[in-house]
Write a protein that binds this DNA or RNA. Structure first.
Lengths: 295, 295
DNA sequence: GCAAAAGCTTCCGATATACGGAATAGATGG
DNA sequence: CCATCTATTCCGTATATCGGAAGCTTTTGC
């Protein structure tokens, strides 16, 4: 901890006045040029498809045009941004795409799961999500649309959900290390206001239930009529590295069908775990098997 | 080690600065911290799944450990990198993933094409690639594996191929603006040494042929026994914005099956074009239709 | 068609910011 | 336990960054 924050002796009555509180997305304290450059990338990501102009960026991030110009030039040279000379607009560069193909992808989880997502969405006819934990959120690493014309709140690839909200999140949370789980609960409870789970007791009950059953399934409570089922993907120690989640309308997860779906999900989850850890070099056994006996 | 500090004494010649000679191309001398930060990200992307340690990065990029440490700290704070505290290794951060979901994705091409790739790979049982142009390369924007256990040289998502090498590339190249195509040919011919097309005449013949037929199909020449078929995805003016490509073994693209595959690809390509430009506000007609008459 | 405005780019001096050597703390391994 | 390698902190130096001002280009307005 320690106050490594350097004192800003500069505040001598300057008063920042006219403080147009930076409402919205940008964080004020960007100092280094690296941070500024990344801020530009984020801005480009959140700007619409046409891209952003230099002065747009300049205004949004509170940087002078020359600075933005120089940073953009670097970003373009490095392939992280693209300049459309015709419209004078900047977009994210395709090299980022190459980078991200590797990002957040331990064990090539995404590649491994891709065919499985395909298979699942075809079999179950619903949309399948692959979620991984990222800090106090779950991130959608991949998605495979099923024939059913529905959309889950879990949203787009790259999207984030507060850990604990939604079935996929719960499945991950239920299979974290105990201490980590406590940390997440502590941090996330305030963030869950009005999105389903409100009180701690209920959350803990849910988690225990999910742990017990090996899957999470409830009406999401977010979209009336929508439900989800999710199972964790476990590492060899039995802790969650990801979750497979199905989002669909509640009718399609009735008493009759639910166990079937859960069964299929568990089987696929186990298959993924096996691929993640083909063989445990120490224990000389394959990865933990979800609901598959003592092991 | 550390024969790298030789540049220190340069100042003896007086200031003389103000001469940023390196205009145009960038080479060894990464100067700005933004560039260094991005270099770290690229290094992390290319390092193996376990991640890279601080000193690895330091050595690889010829930066001092304190510098790398500081940059990594920023990258981690910004979510672009992740530190595995246990192993002291750094990996790409998952936020990059969120960024890239938007990157190089005009009109959400990727999202639009996703279900189509799925359908195609299921129907044709081969692997389908979605390629877009990026400078003088084609980049694999998405991929959908078919049941057949084959891999095309086009490789992974985010991977690059020289424009003109491979069927997908050719399909794009054949439907570029004429001047752009000339530029690409001029630039790429030297890069094609030993990867299939060697001489210009042959390349131009191929391009003309592809333009004429509306699809590209040849044995790749890169992997014996492998072939590919590709069709361009056209914008409303009839120029290529992408290509749909099938990679498979040559036996599966015989005289009998090829026309069927081409037909299916063209149909899907047209469907994509329609979605890209639902309706031309000026011409009052849908996007150009591949091989679909005078439009 | 011209004038005005807005946007983009270049230049350059001031200085804030990033760098790297040295020292410390921590990890690894014999 | 000491030796070695790695990660982290500190701090003086000077380098690379910033932003004002001005030139230049494109767009807007009339």
């Amino acid at each position: 901890m320690s106050a490594d924050l350097r004192r800003r002796a500069k505040d001598s009555a300057g008063v920042e006045s006219a403080g147009p509180e930076n409402a919205g997305t940008d964080e004020a304290g960007s100092k280094s040029s690296l941070q500024r450059g990344l801020a530009i990338l984020r801005l480009l990501a959140s700007s619409n498809e046409a891209g952003a102009r230099l002065t747009d960026i300049s205004r949004a991030l509170d940087l002078t045009p020359p600075t933005v110009h120089r940073l953009l030039k670097i970003l373009v040279e490095e392939g992280m941004a693209e300049a459309d000379k015709a419209t004078k607009r900047y977009r994210l560069g395709i090299d980022l795409f190459g980078l991200a193909a590797q990002a957040g992808n331990p064990n090539n989880l995404r590649d491994i799961c891709r065919p499985i997502l395909l298979r699942l969405s075809a079999t179950l006819r619903d949309t399948i999500f692959l979620l991984v934990r990222s800090g106090f959120d779950a991130v959608c690493l991949d998605r495979s649309e099923g024939p059913f014309p529905i959309r889950s709140f879990t949203g787009d690839i790259g999207g984030r959900v507060t850990l604990g909200v939604g079935q996929g999140s719960l499945a991950i949370m239920a299979f974290l290390h105990a201490e980590e789980r406590e940390e997440v609960i502590r941090f996330n409870l305030p963030r869950m206001q009005g999105v389903g789970i409100i009180d701690e007791v209920y959350l803990r009950t849910e988690i225990a239930r999910v742990r017990d059953l090996g899957y999470a399934s409830r009406s999401t409570g977010l979209l009336p009529g929508m439900s989800g089922v999710a199972v964790p993907v476990l590492d060899r120690d039995g802790y969650a590295v990801a979750a497979l989640s199905v989002g669909t309308i509640s009718e399609r997860l009735n008493e009759e069908r639910l166990p079937v779906v859960v069964d299929i999900l568990k089987r696929e989850s186990t298959a993924i775990s096996r691929q993640l850890n083909p063989f445990d070099p120490v224990l000389r056994r394959p990865a933990a098997i979800l609901g598959g006996g003592p092991a």
